[in-house]
Structure formats: structure tokens, C-alpha cells
């Protein structure tokens, strides 16, 4: 397997080449000589190509958080396995552009909506935003109820486009 990480929206390959006293990695095709010494669960000293850095690391599932050179970096470990689920999201699926709270839903399952209709009011960062229908169709599922919070990327509403119009 080839470990892949997304940093600033770009995917990078970090291949392990060899691990003896030193570790050799191949980062995007460049050989890197590394040495790592863990001080505790979160803190380590990492030497990369001779430059030593104090690094703090923590992980939440496939999200990796690193602190080095006075900055914090968030990376996603790429899940090779999930690719099969992609492509399901169609034109009628609205994913949350940001985390927030559903204030009010103007529609319910089964409602017929036209493109541009206001579907719901969400709130995030003290800003309220109206979510509008991207296509005309029938609401097949609402992602959450009024008052419920959601994370970025959560499906807010699914609209099924009738066959004839698809």
C-alpha cells in the first residue's frame, strides 16, 4: 500500500522505503532521510534531512494534526477504501458548505420543489443562510431536523429529479 495524505487540498504520496536506524521515505518522489524520537504520545523530535524539529502530533480517525515550525497543520489520511462510495452525490443532493445548525426547514419529505425554492435556513458563525433548491424535484430526505447541528459535508437535503426531467 502507498500511504497518501491530503495537505492543503493536494494529495501527496509518502512511501516508506526502509526503516533501520534511520528511516528512508519517498515523499512525492523525493527521498527523505528521517529519524524520529518519541518523547511521549504526542511529542517527538523529528529530524528530516538533517534538520531537527520539535513536533506535536494527534489524530482523530483519519484526520492528522501536526504542530511544527510554529504552525499547525491538518492533514487527511486518504482512505483508499471509500472511493467506491463516491459519485453517488447527484445534482439534487446538497451538502453542508460549513458546519452549522438547522434553524428551520421550509419543506418536508415528499414535497415537490422548483429550482431556486428556499428549502431551509441554516446558521453558522452567527450568519443565517437560506439553502435553495439546485434542481426541481421531490424532496426524498432531509438531512437533519430543526435545531440539530451538522458538520461540514453533511447531506442537508436530497432531491430526486423525476425520470422525465433527468
Amino acid at each position: 500500500m502507498i500511504p497518501k495524505y491530503i495537505l492543503n487540498e493536494n494529495t501527496h504520496e509518502v512511501e516508506l522505503v526502509r526503516r533501520a536506524d534511520n528511516i528512508t521515505l519517498e515523499v512525492d518522489g523525493h527521498l527523505v532521510d528521517a529519524r524520529i524520537h518519541w518523547i511521549d504520545r504526542h511529542q517527538c523530535e523529528l529530524t528530516v534531512n538533517g534538520v531537527a524539529r520539535e513536533v506535536y502530533a494527534a489524530q482523530d480517525d483519519n484526520k492528522l494534526f501536526l504542530h511544527l515550525d510554529g504552525k499547525t497543520f491538518q492533514l487527511d489520511a486518504l482512505d483508499e477504501f471509500g472511493e467506491g462510495d463516491e459519485g453517488v452525490a447527484g445534482g439534487g443532493r446538497i451538502k453542508a458548505p460549513m458546519p452549522g445548525v438547522m434553524i428551520e426547514s421550509y419543506v418536508k419529505d415528499g414535497d415537490t420543489v422548483s429550482e431556486g425554492d428556499a428549502l431551509m435556513l441554516i446558521e453558522s458563525m452567527k450568519l443565517q443562510t437560506e439553502i435553495k433548491a439546485p434542481v426541481s424535484g421531490v424532496v426524498v430526505s432531509l438531512g437533519c431536523e430543526a435545531g440539530a447541528s451538522f458538520d461540514k459535508g453533511a447531506v442537508l437535503v436530497d432531491i430526486e429529479v423525476p425520470e422525465a426531467e433527468a
Binding site: E80, E83, G84
Partner: peptide
């Protein structure tokens, strides 16, 4: 059941 080959290999691992 695997969605695709990558999925099959990941499940295999």
C-alpha cells in the same frame, strides 16, 4: 463484496 479493486485490496488487508 468489494465496490472496486481498491476496496477489495483494502478489505483483504
Amino acid at each position: 463484496h468489494a465496490h472496486n479493486e481498491r476496496d477489495a485490496i483494502a478489505k483483504g488487508r
